[in-house]
Amino acid sequence: MIQVLLFARIQEEVGADRVEADVAGKSIKELKRWMEDRYEVPSLARTMTAVNEEFAGDEEVINEGDTVAFIPPVSGG
């Protein structure tokens, strides 16, 4: 199972701070589609993503046990 962490507005739209996804072996791009199919979220096409706390591109493949996080545009500082 893959842990998918959600923050800020995406967290409020989904109504949870994390979801589990059975997407091992699939790409980030496929995970984005999986999320869009299941939850009322706007397009994630341009949302940044991290795998195991490192920024990752859409083509990166997710492995069993990975933690993926969607990183909406940041606004710290």
Partner: peptide, 14 residues
């Protein structure tokens, strides 16, 4: 540092 924080550190403001 402040520019980089606003670009890439995963912190969000509501």
């Amino acid at each position: 540092i402040m520019e980089r924080i606003k670009e890439m550190v995963p912190i969000w403001k509501k």
